[in-house]
Design a protein around this nucleic acid. Structure first.
Lengths: 360, 360
DNA sequence: ATGAAAGCGCTAACAA
DNA sequence: TTGTTAGCGCTTTCAT
């Protein structure tokens, strides 16, 4: 490594240094192109000596692919997303792609603006995490031939790929669990109205209650926000013991944790003795001993893998069609909710065990 | 908006449509270039009608700047980093730059590999968050003229910019606080040996103890990892009350939270009655009621802003020199550590208040 | 202020 | 397999 790289080294310089043509150099760096062993060696040596690496941007200009995936994400303070981001990034990195990240502005108007900016980078694909987008935009991406995957959101538009968990089923699981453990006054604290996750989780939950002959005792919207959740929780639970819920399903863990804190530290209630709490997502803090939150798990790793798979097949195979993936939701039983009478001890154990063996 | 954009629209097409030259179109989209009002209007109209936007990659090729900032980050499960990432991204977005994210591999060998990949994208600047890099690499970036900022790490190499908090002072503050609140057996649980944060926080902490005539009662390394912290905490505290520490300073909140959980739920101790815990960072979970962790705050927002400032001045001003920014560390007093006798109630209050008013 | 022409660094036909 | 040629979409002198 005799980096003589004072400034930018071009393929032409390497070619001269190696005594071959520009194309030979290009071919050497193009996977699956035909170069003789001899030429390869010469180029390798010259490139090494000059510290040459191909300019991806210049390459993109001609190949028409940038190997950049745009990711638009609404927030990172819900800890489901850092996890997803890390997995997406690693997965794509392994396949030679990289993530250009954009934080979504609050209003839809500006979202369009930001997406235009992303498109300006000639991204090969687009991931929208927890962002709903106008159907106009969807059409525009399609027109440009840029594959799009919606992550954790559904859109009514035809032919748009998405990766979610089975939110309806997840909601139903929560209901089933709370009903089985003999709760009488079951409440729901929801996410942002109008989002597909909120809609489907609530619908599933209600359906689950209904099929057990139960009804919702109380309902509030926490807007997927800690502070709002705190407020609505106070309002919902600050009353006599027989006038308040004895169980609550919260539409995500981010809120559920705030709810637990209010219940315990602002209202002096005991979880799960006074109130059972069930969340959704299974973010890392849900498994922290202070919360030990019973929740509906969304498999972040699997969802990220599917997202990448869809994207790459759309990029590489002309015939690939958009598809909707619905990952299975499963309940993770911990101690924030009262257990059904004859709980299967062994199963709980194994789940807890698994979760404790974190990577290091 | 009559998006006729079946495929890619070029400047030339717009030029023809508007009845002007390629250059005119280019000038219209180049901030601060001279175009007559009339031409501007024609171009604007044509561009709108065809749905044209300049190709940033092609532009980069000629201007030599990509408006991409590479970010290499070690992990996202320490919740200091999602916060930092979000702020960095928004800040840069506002200035017309965007973040290309790379997750650091575990071994240093591969880090070099990944950095090469980043450089291939012709990034205008580089941020290393919690990543130590070989001095060879630093030199290489310099040779390429790519500004580098180390975030939350210090390097002994000359002339490399960095943004950290004053870790030594932060450690000293923790010591001072624990000493003032009359602890006798004060312990330290550190981060990864060899990192500058670990080294400086411990040095400051020890210096603080020393100047009060105290010494470290116990020491262990939690490796900035929950699981390791859990193990060392058990070992350190699973003993008779007079043989175990009555206070512990943990080198970051990510570990401190794990430590608190072990203390309470695995060892049955009470915080802060049996053990006082002080952390470092002030990540959001530190303010959650279940932890209410007294900690040394690193101002993520300010540090992110400084990082961007340094980067942009190096990119835009030829004369700009690398600089080292050391943000002030301050203690945030909550309830995880016993208070000094005459604690200033009002001050605590105001701090807690501030933290509760989160955005929504 | 505007257009013509040159060229950023690279890859992909094509011919040899 | 190799070199030659053209050109990806854009900006930027340089004349006008």
């Amino acid at each position: 490594m005799t980096h003589r790289s004072d400034t930018k080294v071009t393929a032409l310089q390497v070619a001269k240094h190696a005594g071959v043509s520009r194309s030979a150099v290009s071919r050497y760096f193009t996977l699956g192109a035909s170069v003789s062993a001899k030429t390869a060696a010469q180029v390798a040596k010259a490139a090494e000596e000059l510290g040459y690496r191909p300019n991806i941007l210049a390459r993109s200009l001609i190949t028409g692919r940038s190997r950049i995936i745009g990711l638009l994400v609404a927030y990172l303070d819900n800890y489901f997303y850092p996890e997803v981001l890390e997995r997406l990034s690693r997965e794509l990195q392994a396949k030679g792609y990289h993530v250009l990240i954009f934080m979504a502005p609050n209003n839809a108007q500006n979202v369009d603006q930001v997406i235009s900016e992303i498109l300006d980078y000639q991204v090969d694909g687009l991931i929208f995490a927890s962002v709903s987008l106008s159907s106009e935009l969807t059409i525009r991406c399609k027109a440009l031939g840029v594959p799009v995957v919606l992550f954790n959101r559904l859109q009514d538009v035809e032919g748009i790929s998405s990766v979610t968990s089975d939110n309806f089923r997840g909601g139903a699981l929560a209901a089933e669990f709370l009903v089985n453990s003999h709760h009488n006054r079951i409440a729901y604290i929801g996410g942002t109205e109008g989002t597909s996750t909120q809609r489907d989780r609530e619908a599933g939950f209600r359906a689950g209650l209904k099929s057990a002959g139960k009804e919702l005792f109380a309902r509030a919207i926490g807007d997927y926000c800690r502070e709002t959740s705190r407020l609505v929780t106070r309002e919902m639970f600050d009353r006599a013991s027989d006038a308040r819920p004895d169980a609550v399903f919260v539409a995500n863990d981010h809120m559920a944790i705030a709810v637990m804190d209010v219940l315990r530290y602002e209202l002096g209630l005991t979880v799960p003795k006074d109130v059972s709490v069930v969340g959704y997502d299974d973010i890392p803090p849900a498994s922290w001993a202070s919360y030990d939150l019973t929740t509906i798990r969304q498999p972040a790793d699997q969802m990220a893998a599917e997202t990448v798979a869809i994207l790459l097949e759309q990029i590489n195979e002309a015939s690939a069609q958009p598809r909707q993936v619905r990952a299975e939701a499963e309940i993770v039983v911990r101690s924030s909710a009262r257990l059904p009478e004859a709980s299967i001890e062994s199963e709980e154990e194994s789940l807890s065990e698994k979760l404790k063996k974190g990577k290091c």
